[in-house]
Amino acid sequence: MSDIILETKGLTKHYGGVHALQDADFVLKKGEHVAIMGDNGAGKSTFVRQITGVEQRTRGTVIFDGDEVNFAGPLDAREAGIETVFQTLALADDLNVPDNLFLGREKTKLNWLGPFRLLDYKSMREDTMAGLVKTGVKIPNIKNTIANMSGGQRQCVAIARTATFASKLTIMDEPTAALGVQETAQVENIIRTLKEQGESLILVSHNMRQVFDLVDRIIVFRRGRMVANLRKEDTDGQDVVAYITGAKTGAEYEGAA
């Protein structure tokens, strides 16, 4: 077994004539935390959407956990072990915590009943508690609906999905963009916990401090292309900004952008 969890080769996405993502070659090792940075419209979210099967790529290959994969939809990616915390929270407000965690993959009994198969509430509740303990997320009452929770609590619930389902790779798309200081700290603590547990992570973020605090490596996108691949030790904030704005381009990516 190689120690590479995710690899993309020549990953490309065109929306009509718009080249949103162009020939992205990306490697992520097991247990590694990588940040993806770039200006708005640089292709960060597009990149994530191709990996998670939310959209179908125009061309290129995605190799996940040693196998080439073609996810038909986000559920496929999730079943393979990729958990995504989306920019827009993918939570149903009127459902409680276990319901949201298990949405779309409920634990069930009497499966011959088809769509009317019974929910195994007890088992889902236990797994939810275990997942919350593992990530260090504290939610006072998991039977409360999401509508009654703060933004931070909601984001924590979204992240706790990862821990509940023993995933191989977690992708977070701006997990703290809408959160206050204290709530951001809480989410960052969870990310550190995931690191200790050897969980691989792709973090899309605009927050320079957060990125330098949390990850091992920084990838910069600009106008749909990867322009830098920097180890955290070899770079600093100003350097990264130079790549983001286009003042600099990584040597190996010369001529690309």
Binding site: P74, A90, A92, D94, L95, L103, G104, E106, F116
Partner: peptide
């Protein structure tokens, strides 16, 4: 049942239901 849960989920946040 799963039917009931998904009915509430779709009404609550259709995009989330689809993403799930």
């Amino acid at each position: 049942t799963v039917y009931g849960k998904h009915t509430y989920a779709i009404g609550s946040n259709e995009a989330a239901a689809r993403m799930s």
